[in-house]
Protein backbone atom coordinates (compact mmCIF):
# COMPACT_ATOMS: atom_id res chain seq x y z
CA UNK A 1 0.00 0.00 0.00
CA UNK A 2 1.33 3.41 -0.94
CA UNK A 3 1.25 5.72 2.04
CA UNK A 4 0.38 9.35 1.80
CA UNK A 5 1.80 11.67 4.39
CA UNK A 6 0.44 15.20 4.78
CA UNK A 7 3.91 16.61 4.77
CA UNK A 8 3.10 20.29 5.31
CA UNK A 9 0.86 19.50 8.29
CA UNK A 10 3.55 17.27 9.81
CA UNK A 11 6.18 19.94 9.13
CA UNK A 12 4.12 22.52 10.98
CA UNK A 13 3.75 20.19 13.96
CA UNK A 14 7.55 19.71 13.86
CA UNK A 15 8.12 23.47 13.55
CA UNK A 16 10.00 23.12 10.27
CA UNK A 17 9.41 25.42 7.30
CA UNK A 18 9.75 23.41 4.08
CA UNK A 19 10.22 24.73 0.57
CA UNK A 20 7.94 23.27 -2.08
CA UNK A 21 10.83 21.20 -3.47
CA UNK A 22 11.67 19.85 0.00
CA UNK A 23 8.03 18.96 0.61
CA UNK A 24 7.79 16.97 -2.64
CA UNK A 25 11.08 15.18 -1.99
CA UNK A 26 10.43 14.29 1.66
CA UNK A 27 6.87 13.21 0.93
CA UNK A 28 8.09 10.67 -1.64
CA UNK A 29 11.00 9.46 0.50
CA UNK A 30 8.91 9.09 3.65
CA UNK A 31 6.11 7.31 1.81
CA UNK A 32 8.68 4.68 0.84
CA UNK A 33 9.91 4.40 4.43
CA UNK A 34 6.33 4.12 5.74
CA UNK A 35 5.59 1.40 3.17
CA UNK A 36 8.50 -0.51 4.64
CA UNK A 37 6.97 -0.12 8.13
CA UNK A 38 4.30 -2.57 6.94
CA UNK A 39 6.74 -5.29 8.02
CA UNK A 40 5.50 -4.54 11.56
CA UNK A 41 2.25 -6.23 10.48
CA UNK A 42 4.09 -9.52 9.93
CA UNK A 43 3.79 -10.71 13.54
CA UNK A 44 0.88 -10.95 15.94
CA UNK A 45 1.36 -8.08 18.36
CA UNK A 46 -1.92 -8.38 20.21
CA UNK A 47 -1.45 -8.73 23.94
CA UNK A 48 2.26 -7.93 23.76
CA UNK A 49 3.44 -5.49 26.42
CA UNK A 50 5.20 -2.28 25.38
CA UNK A 51 8.93 -1.67 25.82
CA UNK A 52 9.76 1.99 26.31
CA UNK A 53 13.34 1.23 27.20
CA UNK A 54 15.51 -1.76 27.65
CA UNK A 55 16.34 -1.71 31.35
CA UNK A 56 13.72 -2.22 34.07
CA UNK A 57 14.34 0.89 36.14
CA UNK A 58 11.53 3.16 37.29
CA UNK A 59 10.90 6.13 39.55
CA UNK A 60 14.47 7.33 39.90
CA UNK A 61 14.94 9.94 42.60
CA UNK A 62 17.92 11.90 43.76
CA UNK A 63 18.71 13.14 47.23
CA UNK A 64 16.95 16.41 47.94
CA UNK A 65 20.11 18.45 48.34
CA UNK A 66 21.13 21.51 46.40
CA UNK A 67 24.02 21.20 43.97
CA UNK A 68 26.01 23.76 42.06
CA UNK A 69 24.65 24.50 38.58
CA UNK A 70 25.55 26.96 35.87
CA UNK A 71 25.58 30.54 37.06
CA UNK A 72 23.64 33.18 35.14
CA UNK A 73 26.54 34.29 32.96
CA UNK A 74 27.39 30.69 32.04
CA UNK A 75 23.76 29.87 31.26
CA UNK A 76 23.48 32.90 29.01
CA UNK A 77 26.87 32.54 27.36
CA UNK A 78 25.57 30.64 24.31
CA UNK A 79 22.33 32.58 23.86
CA UNK A 80 22.00 34.08 20.38
CA UNK A 81 20.22 37.10 21.93
CA UNK A 82 20.06 38.26 25.49
CA UNK A 83 19.24 41.39 27.36
CA UNK A 84 19.39 42.49 30.99
CA UNK A 85 20.61 39.09 32.15
CA UNK A 86 17.80 37.23 30.38
CA UNK A 87 17.15 35.29 27.17
CA UNK A 88 15.55 37.54 24.55
CA UNK A 89 12.69 35.89 22.69
CA UNK A 90 10.28 37.01 19.97
CA UNK A 91 7.23 39.00 21.00
CA UNK A 92 4.35 36.66 21.92
CA UNK A 93 1.70 39.25 22.92
CA UNK A 94 0.80 42.35 20.97
Amino acid sequence: MAHHIDIQHTAKLARLKLTEQEAVKYEAQLAKVLDYMETLEGHDLSGVELTAHAMPIYDVWREDVSVEGLDRAEALANAPRKTAGQFLISRVVE
Binding site: K12, A14, R15, L16, K17, L18, A75, N78, A79, P80, R81, F87, I89, S90, R91, V92
Partner: peptide, 22 residues
Protein backbone atom coordinates in the same frame (compact mmCIF):
# COMPACT_ATOMS: atom_id res chain seq x y z
CA UNK B 1 16.58 30.87 22.14
CA UNK B 2 19.03 29.39 24.63
CA UNK B 3 21.84 28.32 22.29
CA UNK B 4 22.57 27.67 18.66
CA UNK B 5 21.34 29.21 15.45
CA UNK B 6 18.63 31.89 15.41
CA UNK B 7 16.97 33.15 12.23
CA UNK B 8 16.99 36.89 11.62
CA UNK B 9 13.99 39.08 10.78
CA UNK B 10 11.19 36.65 11.51
CA UNK B 11 7.58 37.85 11.53
CA UNK B 12 6.38 36.34 14.79
CA UNK B 13 7.18 33.63 17.31
CA UNK B 14 5.88 30.77 15.11
CA UNK B 15 7.88 32.05 12.15
CA UNK B 16 10.90 32.28 14.47
CA UNK B 17 10.70 28.55 15.23
CA UNK B 18 9.84 27.48 11.66
CA UNK B 19 12.61 29.50 10.05
CA UNK B 20 15.28 28.94 12.70
CA UNK B 21 14.85 25.17 12.48
CA UNK B 22 14.57 25.18 8.68
Amino acid sequence: VRYGHRAENTADVLDHYLTTRA
